[in-house]
Write a protein that binds this DNA or RNA. Structure first.
Lengths: 304, 304
DNA sequence: GATAGTCACTAAATCGAATTAGTAACAGGA
DNA sequence: TCCTGTTACTAATTCGATTTAGTGACTATC
């Protein structure tokens, strides 16, 4: 930190010019430098503990080797954590770093941030990348959605409701719904019945009352996420409905606290690391590695 | 992005040298520049939409106007969110930006990250800043801890257990415990009884059985956090204990899902924004603004 | 009228790495 | 012998803002 080792220092130590050092350390193609010299340079670089000053490099190259991830209002959930871990790991392996900007941001502050970091790329979970279908991340949810419904179908349920939250989840609610309908079709069951459970226990009770009155044939509720599922499950319990005997409930994205409940909530665990790695490759403009199948699985607890 | 407006452009537009522009825009002290010229410069700067290129600036100044927050394993909770919001807001107001690095990091990758971002300062929640007593953030929890116990005392409880999690919470468990003991003393009640509820429902049941057998006089459980409190509450419910009549339960840090439970969990809401702002000032080496009292309050639900 | 002091500026160096445009030195072919 | 090509390098410029060290022009003082 205090004394910075620069290209010049390495050049001096190895008896060549800074230019040559740069050529060697960057493996600049089209340069004819004998192996002996290369070794000398590399050795004194490691001996001195040379680390390229990335700000200088960024100034020259016009952008830094940092990728910025903005999450917007998106919060929590196991899958976000593993997604971030995946992005971060992949980027690191490719000489880059991940940096996360939290919270919703105005366009203005985003511009400032871009200025401040000059990232190589931006992964915007809040905006385009999450909001519209077709991104890796949202497409990644489709198999998980299918996993959720398949579990219920495997247990003999065919009339299924999808509990949806109200509040600021952006386009994600729509996406999950349409993915569920597609999955239902593929599984050969009738379309799922969407039901808004709102944010509070009272709203959820009302919603469940409506559901059981209007759709008495329904025997299972799939949740938009674990909180939504828990809200529905609590409301059903309040109404004296036996879970899972009369009504099965399954969550989504395996938030830790689903396990604490009585009955403990069955959920879909999404290993989003693979998506994270793919997203990282996409951000760097690299062809992503081969796809290794669907990384979502059921965490079986008591509610189904 | 594509066409960058530089100091030179502003200089050309306003008919002065880049030096003068820099002096004007940075309000460099000790410079005698008439107000008329200043206005001219400032006007063409805004007209052209000039934004200083912070990488160039960082290169010159030796560090960027970014503050890095590393969270380590610390996860979730309302208060982390508001803490981050506070830090972020304060920094922005002072011309800086916050960037969060998630996940535990090796020293090596931290060094890399520092290289990549050259932050003005680092706020390390995982390490020193969180782990040891005496930091703003952990000291900030003391009044919240007192709030938690005071609520129980106000409701007539004097024999109180503190439910603690197992797992990787670092020094925070110790800190909360010692703060609780201090608060208990100040409130004139006997020391709280620590009880490890573990991670699973089964462990929690065992812990609650032990607690009720060994300390039958205890009438209230305070949680390390909401998940811990919920775990304890679920175990008590399993054992047929009436909540809050026989045993009151209160959480900490008001995670959203506490409200979904039956009975809904009373908790302590911590408005950590103020702490965040103070932490930001500390990071920038600025004397923080005046302290405006304890920003924690009780969210009263059904469990107390 | 010489000197000092302010005013209103500017030229040039600087931060560190990347890169373009070279240049000596030598080899091989016509 | 001259010319072309290759090898093994290097000098100098660039990225954009900051900052030091000036420089003329003018005013005030002795």
């Amino acid at each position: 930190m205090v004394v910075r080792i620069t290209l010049k220092d390495v050049a001096r130590a190895s008896g060549v010019s800074p230019t040559t050092v740069s050529f060697v350390l960057n493996n600049t193609p089209g340069q004819t430098i004998p192996e002996l010299t290369r070794q000398r340079v590399r050795q004194s670089a490691t001996e001195l503990g040379y680390l390229p000053h990335s700000i200088a490099r960024a100034l020259r190259e016009g952008r830094s080797r940092v990728v910025l991830l903005t999450t917007g209002r998106w919060r929590g959930g196991q899958s976000l954590d593993s997604f971030i871990a995946g992005v971060s790991g992949e980027l690191r392996a490719r000489g880059h770093n991940l940096v996360v900007h939290y919270g919703e941001q105005s366009d203005e502050s985003l511009a400032e941030l871009l200025e401040a970091v000059s990232p190589r790329a931006v992964l915007d979970l809040a905006g385009a990348d999450l909001g519209q279908e077709g991104s890796d991340w949202t497409d990644g949810l489709a198999p998980a959605t299918a996993t959720q419904l398949r579990h219920l179908v495997d247990r003999g349920h065919t009339a299924i409701a999808l509990a949806l939250p109200s509040g600021d989840y952006g386009a994600l609610v729509e996406i999950r719904l349409s993915q569920s309908q597609r999955a239902a079709e593929a599984l050969g069951i009738p379309p799922v019945t969407p039901v808004m459970v709102g944010q509070s226990r009272a709203e959820a009770r009302e919603a469940m009352r409506w559901l059981r009155h209007e759709h008495p044939q329904i025997t299972a509720v799939a949740g938009f996420d674990d909180d939504t599922a828990l809200l529905a499950m609590g409301a059903l319990a309040d109404a004296g409905v036996a879970i899972p005997e009369t009504m099965a409930v399954i969550g989504f994205d395996d938030a830790r606290h689903g396990a604490i409940w009585t009955p403990a909530l069955t959920s879909v665990h999404i290993d989003a690391e693979a998506y994270g790695r793919r997203a990282a490759c996409a951000a760097l403009g690299i062809e992503p590695e081969e796809w290794t199948g669907d990384p979502s699985y059921i965490v079986l607890r008591e509610s189904t």
